[in-house]
C-alpha cells in the first residue's frame, strides 16, 4: 500500500502477557479481562471473537492505548505501554495505531478530506503534505469524487472507507477494527472486509474485533474470548 509501513519478519508487534483489567463500580470490583496472553506478529491478520460482554472491546481499547491495563504487561512495537504518560499514549495512538470503529466516528462538520487529514494535523505534518497524502488515501479507497463531502452525505460503506483512510494516514504499525461491519449491510460489510484483506496482503497488520463468525473468517487466525478470558485459538489458513 502506497507508503504504508510494512514490518517484515516474525517480530512480535503486540505482546500481551498476564493482562488483567478490573473496573471499580462503587465498592464492587468487576474483572473484565483476566490473564490475557496474546501475541500478534507484524503482518498478521487476527480476529478476536466473542459474544457481547466478553470484554473484547475493552481489550481493543487497551491494545489501542485508549485505556491502560490494571495488571500485567503490554508491549507495542517494543514499548512497554503500561508505564507511559498520557502524552506518550497520545503519541502512540497517533503514530502506531489506526482505529476503525463500528460507528465510523467521523467528525460531522468536516469534509472527508479534512477527516483523513486530522491524524496528520496532530502529527505536525505540513498542510500541503497532508493534503496530498489524504487525497492519495481517499483515491485508493475509491472515493476520488467524495473529497469535499461531509459524512452525512456519504453512505455507510463510504463512511467506513473514509475511516479506514483516516486510520492509515500516519502509516500505523497496526490497524485496529472494532466491529467494522456492525453498522453496514451484508454486501457492504463484505466489501469492507475485502478491503482489510487487501490491506493485509499489502503488509498491514490488522486486528479485527467481532462477534460475527463470518467476519472473523477473513482473518488468518481467530482468538476466542469469553467472560474476559481467552478460551481458544484457531488458525484458519
Amino acid at each position: 500500500m502506497g507508503g504504508t509501513q510494512t514490518v517484515t519478519g516474525d517480530c512480535a508487534l503486540i505482546e500481551v502477557s498476564h493482562l488483567d483489567k478490573v473496573y471499580s463500580v462503587g465498592d464492587d470490583k468487576v474483572t473484565v479481562l483476566q490473564n490475557i496472553n496474546l501475541t500478534v506478529r507484524a503482518g498478521e491478520f487476527v480476529s478476536i471473537m466473542g459474544p457481547s460482554g466478553s470484554g473484547k472491546s475493552t481489550l481493543m481499547h487497551i491494545l489501542g492505548c485508549l485505556d491502560v491495563p490494571s495488571r500485567g504487561q503490554y508491549q507495542l512495537h517494543g514499548q512497554a505501554v503500561e508505564s507511559l504518560t498520557p502524552w506518550e499514549l497520545a503519541h502512540i495512538r497517533n503514530q502506531e495505531v489506526g482505529f476503525v470503529f463500528q460507528n465510523f466516528y467521523l467528525l460531522p462538520r468536516m469534509t472527508a478530506l479534512r477527516n483523513v487529514e486530522l491524524p496528520m494535523v496532530y502529527a505536525g505534518i505540513s498542510p500541503v503534505d497532508r493534503r496530498r497524502r489524504a487525497s492519495e488515501l481517499l483515491h485508493q479507497m475509491g472515493l476520488s469524487d467524495r473529497f469535499q463531502h461531509r459524512p452525512n452525505t456519504l453512505s455507510g460503506g463510504q463512511k467506513q472507507r473514509v475511516a479506514i483512510a483516516r486510520a492509515l494516514a500516519n502509516n500505523p504499525s497496526v490497524l485496529l477494527a472494532d466491529e467494522p461491519t456492525g453498522a453496514l449491510d451484508t454486501k457492504t460489510g463484505e466489501e469492507i472486509m475485502g478491503m482489510f484483506q487487501a490491506l493485509n496482503q499489502g503488509g498491514v497488520t490488522v486486528v479485527v474485533i467481532t462477534h460475527d463468525a463470518k467476519v472473523a473468517h477473513y482473518a488468518r487466525r481467530t482468538v476466542h474470548l469469553l467472560d474476559g478470558k481467552i478460551v481458544g485459538e484457531e488458525d484458519l489458513r
Binding site: L66, A90, H91, R93, N94, F99, L106, P119, Y122
Partner: peptide
C-alpha cells in the same frame, strides 16, 4: 475521537 487519533 480526536484523542483516539492522537490529540494530546
Amino acid at each position: 475521537i480526536r484523542m483516539s487519533l492522537g490529540a494530546t
